[in-house]
Simulated assay, not measured.
Amino acid sequence: MTIPYLTLAASAVGGLIGGLIRLLPGLRRGSARRFLVGIAVALIVCMLVFGLYAVGVNVLRVDPKVKRGAALVFVISAMGAYFGSGLLGGPKPPPSDE
């Protein structure tokens, strides 16, 4: 069995960038823990969104012309992290304590 290191790295980097784009504008002083939790959730969601895409479940509702490669993995993962868990159609996240 070969481990797809490039695919995993592209997904993780895409998820990290998508999560940063989503979270940095709302970052406030003293909210480091909330930020780290947000990045962790973004990475989990990005991996799940890409995994779903890989098996034929497209929750992003996009139809890219490119069907494989590291760039596709990166973009799908970044979009998944940016749009967040709302893509998955589950329950809404709990309200913030702000």
Rank of each mutant, 00 (worst) to 15 (best):
A32I: 04
V13W: 00
G30Y: 05
V37A: 01
S77N: 09
L8V: 07
S11I: 15
T7V: 13
G38K: 08
L8P: 11
G15H: 08
R29Q: 06
C46P: 02
R22P: 07
L20R: 05
V41N: 09
R61T: 09
M47I: 05
F50P: 01
G18P: 09
V49F: 12
L52R: 12
R61V: 08
K92P: 04
V13Q: 00
L20Y: 03
P93I: 11
P95N: 08
D63Y: 14
V41P: 01
L72R: 03
G30P: 06
F83Y: 15
Y53S: 11
I3D: 02
G69E: 09
S85Q: 15
Y82Q: 06
R28P: 02
V66T: 15
I3Y: 15
Y82L: 14
A40Q: 04
G30H: 03
G56E: 15
G15I: 02
V75D: 08
L72T: 06
R61L: 02
I21V: 08
C46E: 05
A10N: 00
V13D: 00
V49M: 09
A9T: 13
N58E: 13
D97F: 13
K67N: 14
S85N: 14
G38N: 12
A71Y: 07
Y5P: 02
G14S: 06
G90S: 06
P95F: 11
M47F: 05
K67V: 11
F35E: 00
S31G: 04
V62Y: 13
G15V: 01
G56K: 12
I17C: 08
R29H: 04
F83Q: 00
V45Q: 01
P4A: 04
V37T: 10
A70S: 13
L60A: 10
G18S: 03
P4R: 05
G90L: 12
L43S: 06
I44T: 06
V62K: 12
E98C: 04
K92Y: 02
L60H: 05
P64N: 13
Y53T: 03
L36E: 07
S77Y: 10
A12F: 10
I3K: 13
L72Y: 14
G26N: 10
R28V: 06
L27M: 10
I39C: 03
I44H: 00
A78F: 05
M79P: 04
S77P: 09
R34W: 07
G86E: 11
A81C: 09
G56L: 13
A71I: 10
L87W: 09
T7M: 09
A10K: 01
M47T: 12
Y5V: 11
L16T: 07
L27H: 07
R34F: 12
I3S: 05
R28T: 00
A71F: 14
D63H: 13
M47K: 03
R68P: 04
L87V: 14
F50C: 00
G38V: 03
L6C: 02
L6H: 11
S11W: 04
P25T: 12
G18Q: 09
L27G: 03
G15N: 08
I44Y: 00
T7K: 14
G84N: 10
V73G: 02
M79D: 02
G90W: 14
